[in-house]
Design a protein around this nucleic acid. Structure first.
Lengths: 63, 63
DNA sequence: AGTTAATGTCAATTATATTTTACATTTTAT
DNA sequence: ATAAAATGTAAAATATAATTGACATTAACT
């Protein structure tokens, strides 16, 4: 299942996958894969993404 | 950093680490390690733990 | 005291998240 | 129409989450 909430939050900040990757300290492919939804990031990375995008875990990663 | 919120939520349900491990499909050592705090579980496991304990990600895994 | 359930912890192995390199496709802008 | 940036995707390698088995300690109970 795609993570459209993440994709939308990133779009709302006008931030590319590459920039989000740099700010969270992971590769662009990792961000892409999380948005694509076919895997399972660590809570630490989810938290880092939330902080960069100004959202909480519940807002981006709760179903 | 220990996860005392998780430990407290489990205690509030009077549930052992072993039972929580069984209900979330991981080993007891994994639950113990998460409570001890010296690592970084996947979002999928965090979500499973939250559902068993009737809490949200923000309540148990947001700092 | 003695017994049992629960917890803390460690070493070795397995499963999988993440990286790296690379290329194709799509969007955005000129 | 063309170039550049952004995205989608894949295979191989690396880092680390999670398992297994084992043992010691602590808490709860009779």
């Amino acid at each position: 299942m795609k993570n459209l909430k993440l994709k939308a939050a990133r779009a709302a900040m006008d931030m590319s996958q590459q920039v989000l990757a740099d700010k969270t300290g992971v590769s662009r492919q990792t961000i892409n894969a999380i948005e694509k939804g076919d895997y399972n990031p660590t809570i630490k990375l989810c938290t880092a993404i939330c902080k960069v995008l100004g959202k909480t875990l519940d807002e981006l990663f709760w179903e």
